[in-house]
């Protein structure tokens, strides 16, 4: 695993503290969306499908910091939209780093080189760029519906690494992806020198009979097993090994959506990063008034039945690590051996 020891320790001690205080639901990663605007228009992206006045809006740094303080999660992920288009992104990151939050800036990297050259950011162990790459050049450019984006992203990654920044990648895998090409992509990212990779299946929702749901889940397990079984020793993942085992069908987890709460210009999103069933005015209200029993794969909610997405299940995996000796042992074993 590639998560730095100091970050692992910060997260581990935070989780232990939550457990010791008997807190049943706690956040691990705050998904902070300062804006929905983006310089790409990937097919089907729900984040950019808003009227113009909403796309023009963004949170103030003060609103962002108030959300970070109220939530208290040790890790803050800044997706969007495209956060490099947020006018105050430099100040926001700098302030969060000063507060010792581990910050992941999730970017399509089109503007990365330009912003680095403008001196907007300073390298820190608390700060990582998380570059969106859904595969090798052909696959990624197709996924984002624009040629040349992969090359721009790779240039941005190289520049960030050259300047001493932490760089990770995040990839969403949809049905039909080639396991072999994905393995080649992992090799290429390691050759580039990124710290680690994050992967997650895409989210799709359609009403279907039980058998079809079962087949979809099975297909996802088969896909991730084909990709991750017999991993190259060089590969490093910036995420819980138990979550990767879950994707392969080796762990049976339930969703814990409060682990990755989402805050944006509308407020605190219910119940998770994917579904928008309403907004709460505060994190406390989100925790206390969301009907959590209506969500997760076992809830019977059609929208959740095929979901294996990281924002719902990675916090479960992290919690599992500290919930039992078996969870801890499995995590240590996968971390040390690099096998899932």
């Amino acid at each position: 695993m590639s998560v730095p020891v100091s970050q692992m320790w910060a997260v581990a001690s935070y989780v232990m503290k939550q457990k010791l205080t008997g807190r049943k639901r706690y956040p691990l990663v705050l998904m902070l969306e300062p804006l929905f605007r983006c310089n790409l228009a990937c097919a089907g992206c729900g984040k950019i499908q808003y009227p113009a006045q909403i796309l023009r809006k963004h949170l103030t740094v003060e609103q962002c910091l108030a959300a970070v303080d109220e939530c208290g999660a040790p890790v803050v992920s800044i997706p969007g939209g495209e956060p490099l288009m947020y006018p105050d992104i430099g100040r926001l990151v700098e302030t969060l780093v000063a507060r010792r939050k581990y910050v992941y800036l999730c970017t399509n990297a089109i503007l990365l080189k330009e912003k680095l050259e403008a001196g907007l950011f300073t390298p820190s162990k608390y700060f990582s760029f998380s570059v969106h790459l859904d595969g090798l050049r052909a696959e990624h450019d197709e996924a984002v519906c624009r040629n040349g984006v992969y090359v721009q992203a790779v240039e941005g990654i190289k520049e960030a690494l050259r300047r001493g920044f932490r760089v990770t990648t995040n990839s969403t895998l949809f049905d039909g992806v080639s396991p072999l090409r994905m393995r080649e992509f992992f090799d290429e990212m390691m050759d580039l020198g990124v710290e680690g990779m994050m992967i997650s299946p895409g989210y799709s929702y359609s009403k279907a009979p039980d058998q079809e749901h079962f087949l979809r889940t099975q297909r996802a397990h088969d896909l991730f097993s084909a990709i991750l079984s017999n991993p190259n020793r060089r590969w490093r993942f910036n995420q819980s090994p138990l979550f990767l085992q879950f994707l392969m069908g080796k762990q049976d987890f339930e969703c814990t959506p409060w682990g990755n709460p989402t805050y944006n210009v509308f407020g605190w999103q219910r119940p998770c990063y994917l579904l928008q069933e309403g907004y709460a005015a505060s994190f406390t209200e989100l925790l206390e008034t969301t009907r959590w029993e209506n969500y997760g794969r076992r809830s019977g909610n059609e929208k959740c039945r095929d979901c294996m997405v990281h924002c719902g299940y990675e916090p479960t995996a992290v919690n599992h690590t500290f919930a039992s000796w078996r969870g801890f042992r499995d995590t240590v074993h996968a971390t040390v051996t690099g096998r899932f």
Binding site: C42, G44, P79, G80, G81, C106, T172, S204, S206, Y273
Partner: peptide
């Protein structure tokens, strides 16, 4: 939707079948 985009792509390739619309899709870079 992503499914609509896939449908259009499949149609362009002359495919006969495409999956049912799956509605809004979240961003892929989070």
């Amino acid at each position: 939707s992503y499914a609509a985009w896939l449908r259009a792509k499949e149609a362009a390739k002359g495919a006969l079948h495409a999956e049912k619309d799956s509605g809004r899709t979240p961003p892929r870079d989070a």
